[in-house]
Each structure stands twice: as C-alpha cells, then as structure tokens.
Design a binder for these strands. Structure first.
Length: 279
DNA sequence: ATTGAGACCTGTCGGC
DNA sequence: TGCCGACAGGTCTCAA
C-alpha cells in the first residue's frame, strides 16, 4: 500500500507507539526481505529508544538513542500492525493456529505494545544506518524534494524536468524529481493538471529551466492530490476515490469533458489518463 | 545519458 | 472446482 500518502498514514499510526518507546526485544523471522537485514539487527535495536519517527519520500526513518537510524520501506505489500496487551493474547492464539507466515519482524516495546511488520511480497526493506551512512546513502541522499514541503514548487519541478526527454509521467516516478510519488498519484496529478502523461518532461520548463504555466499547474496538482489522499487515508476511507487510476473505460470525471479513461503502458507501468482533456 | 526489459516474490482475479 | 496467465500501489540492475 505504499506511495507517499499511505506511508505518511502509517507513520501517523506508528508514531504514538514508537516515539520515546524503549525497544525491549526484536524478533526476526527470516534473514532478508528485498535485501538481507543488517548484521546484528536485533541486538543493535534492543535497548534503544526511538527518538523520532520521520518519513522521507516512501521511507520511514526511526532515529534511535543509539545514534543509528532504522530505515524502513514497505515495498509493494508491506504493512504494520500494532497490538497492545490485549493483542498480545490474540497473537498467542494465532501462534497456536499457525502464525501468519508473512510476519517478518516483531518489535516488542517496553509499554507492552507489539508492532509487527508484515510483507507478503517481500519487496520491503529494513536497514540500520549511522549518521554518516545516511548522508552518503546512494538512494536516500539523492531523493528529490518532498512534494508537500515549501521548497517543492513550480520552480523546483521545472528545474528537475529541464531538458528531460522522457515522458512526463515517467519523470514523476523518478524519486529524484519528486520524492514519494508512485504510479497512482502520478496518474492522478497529471489528470488534475490536465497534462498528457506522454508529453516530454522538458515541455513544462523553458530551455533555461524556468517554469511554464504547466509547471505551476502540475506542482499545484501534486500537492492537492497528495494532501487529499493523506486525509482520506488517515480517515480510514479506502480506494475507489481515484479520478483515473484503474478506471479504464469509465467517463472522465472532469465536468463537461465527456472523454473516456484509457490505459497504456509506460516504462512497464500502467498509465491511466483521459485523452480528451489531458494535453 | 537514457531507457526499456527483466528480476525480485506472492496474492488475487478473470477466463477457460 | 481447478489450473493458468496476467497483473499489482516499488526499486534495482543490466544491456542497448
């Protein structure tokens, strides 16, 4: 479930349980997800206190009293659940019936809360990084601006797209351009901005990299789409709230457009768009 | 420098 | 009911 809005919702769910929490025990039920867990994963976490739980793009970052940072990524199918004292008994029941084989990491907190990471597809990731490793990280250090921050605006977006001949939608999926956008919200934002997913990314900027009017529209659309998705997500409401994603053949939701949503593959991913109003 | 394809892994859904 | 292929919200790597 993981694009920026979903990860942010997870962060908000976990924060009250994790922040200032002392980790008393960690259960690791397999050696790897997308990548191996770092050596000494459990022992390096045990006895540490979580200082803060932050989100960067689609990553969750738990800063620890030990000085290390626990980096977590949900991949395609990762999720967390929290159980209190009552839930621990439920966990015990499940144990008898056979535990969920996709529960890979269990954090036991001093409060009695138990936080479990579940990931059927195992595209998720957990790592422990020092301050230095964090700032030099090949992926994390190159992430683009947070789309919901003040530093992300038409100027920044245009500069990031300057000279790029790749399709605009493919550019939006590049985490160096706008960190945290995924396939769904790339489609959604482009529809809100009335921009074709197929036009070259550079067309929203002047050759010098200044924002055109289209860049302003797109930057605004990205913020709007993500903000609303976070609200819907934290308010629990699940999908079917998309304008174009997974709506092939349905009428374009834009008032008076009359177009029909179509689907095409770009860079191996499904793109949903209205050929009538997105130019 | 880009970009497309394939790989990673499991679950689900539609068609036969 | 059961099997099979296609597909899924994310990266990463390798070849062209």
């Amino acid at each position: 479930m993981p694009e920026l809005p979903e990860v942010e919702a997870v962060r908000r769910l976990l924060e009250p349980h994790f922040s200032n929490a002392l980790i008393t025990r960690v259960e690791l039920r397999r050696a790897d997800l997308r990548a191996p867990f770092p050596t000494g994963f459990e022992s390096r976490l045990t006895g540490a206190t979580v200082v803060s739980l932050l989100r960067r793009a689609k990553y969750l970052l738990a800063t620890l009293s030990s000085g290390e940072t626990l980096v977590m990524h949900l991949g395609m199918s990762g999720s967390f659940r929290v159980e209190g004292a009552a839930g621990v008994r439920a966990e015990g029941d499940r144990e008898v019936l056979g535990a969920d084989p996709h529960d890979h990491v269990v954090f036991h907190l001093h409060s009695g809360d138990v936080v479990t990471f579940n990931d059927p597809r195992r595209f998720g990731l957990m790592d422990l990084l020092s301050e230095a490793e964090l700032t030099a990280h090949p992926v994390l250090s190159k992430l683009g601006r947070e789309p919901l921050s003040n530093e992300f605006d038409a100027v920044a977006l245009a500069r990031a797209c300057q000279g790029k001949k790749i399709p605009l939608k493919v550019a939006l999926l590049d985490q160096r351009v706008a960190a945290g956008i995924g396939n769904i919200y790339a489609c959604e934002a482009l529809h809100v901005a009335r921009l074709s997913p197929f036009r070259q990314a550079r067309t929203i900027a002047t050759p010098a990299g200044a924002p055109r009017e289209t860049a302003h529209r797109l930057a605004r659309a990205i913020k709007q789409v993500l903000t609303r998705a976070i609200e819907a997500e934290t308010r629990n409401a699940r999908s079917s709230r998309f304008r174009v994603y997974d709506r092939t053949g349905q009428p374009c939701p834009r008032r008076g457009c009359g177009g029909t949503i179509r689907q095409r593959i770009q860079a191996g991913r499904s793109t949903f768009y209205c050929p009538r109003c997105q130019r």
